[in-house]
């Protein structure tokens, strides 16, 4: 399988703190890649560099064959970003939010409306499309947040903790959506603090801590490094790699 994303020695420093330190990894086409790590490990900074909004201090990334530092416009045509925050306009309806982001991505008004309707159907919000997002439940807002990321018709989707603080029904709906997207040919980079999510969804997992990538492999491979893959949980793997000390 070809690599759709290849990060090479990616580094970023903020005010004397090495947030990301020589991180290298690849994500294969149509793979769901989990990026795990405790708070402050450097996951979000890595995603910001991969998604072209933060320039790396060192190293580079190729996405779909284009460099994020030199060909960022081409990269942006191929990615969709669902940030950790609810990056949307609560005063507007879900439909208006999606149409706006679609048009900003270059779609015509007609294309954006059509794609917005399809996407809202996909995330189970078609019947509430015209309601202001501020009236939605937390889970519905999370689904709108994901739907917006799909409005640029991306080949690579970044999902940064997309299931924080939502009910099991919404979480399951998001899992199904992610799996369906992968089935349609999309590549997904997924970060989460819920280990069972990563275990269920991800083909491969990278574990980051203190800005460095400290483990990389399929869930079963990582479990085997720690104990019996049949009985070891991903949480045990995670704690084994990152330690038990509290983080900020």
């Amino acid at each position: 399988m070809d690599d759709f994303l290849a990060a090479d020695n990616l580094s970023k420093r903020f005010d004397g703190v090495q947030a990301v330190d020589s991180v290298s990894f690849a994500i294969r086409s149509q793979e769901i890649f989990g990026l795990l790590g405790p708070n402050g490990a450097g996951k979000t900074t890595t995603i910001r560099m991969l998604s072209t909004v933060l320039a790396p201090d060192g190293g580079d990334v190729e996405i779909g064959g284009y460099s994020v530092t030199r060909e960022s416009d081409e990269v942006r045509k191929r990615i969709g970003v669902c940030p950790q925050e609810l990056a949307l306009y609560p005063e507007l309806s879900a439909s208006d939010n999606l149409v706006f982001f679609g048009r900003m991505a270059g779609l015509s008004g007609r294309e954006a409306k059509s794609l917005a309707a399809d996407t809202l159907e996909r995330v189970g919000l078609a019947d509430r499309a015209k309601d202001a997002v501020r009236k939605y439940s937390g889970g519905m807002k999370r689904r709108v947040n994901i739907a917006i990321a799909l409005m640029s018709r991306p080949q690579l989707l970044f999902l940064d903790e997309p299931t924080v603080g939502i009910d099991p029904q919404s979480r399951n709906h998001i899992f199904d959506t992610v799996l369906a997207l992968r089935g349609e040919g999309m590549t997904v980079l997924y970060t989460t603090h819920y280990m069972e999510e990563a275990d269920r969804l991800c083909d491969r997992i990278g574990v980051m801590d203190n800005g460095r990538l400290i483990a990389l492999g399929a869930p079963a491979e990582l479990k085997a490094q720690v104990g019996d893959p049949a009985t070891t949980t991903l949480e045990e793997v995670f704690l084994n790699f990152t330690g038990r000390s509290l983080r900020d």
């Binding site: 072209t52 909004v53 942006r76 969709g80 990056a87 982001f101 900003m104 917006i148 640029s152």
Partner: peptide
């Protein structure tokens, strides 16, 4: 940031 990543 999302807008920038979206091509704005």
């Amino acid at each position: 940031e999302r807008l920038l990543a979206n091509g704005a």
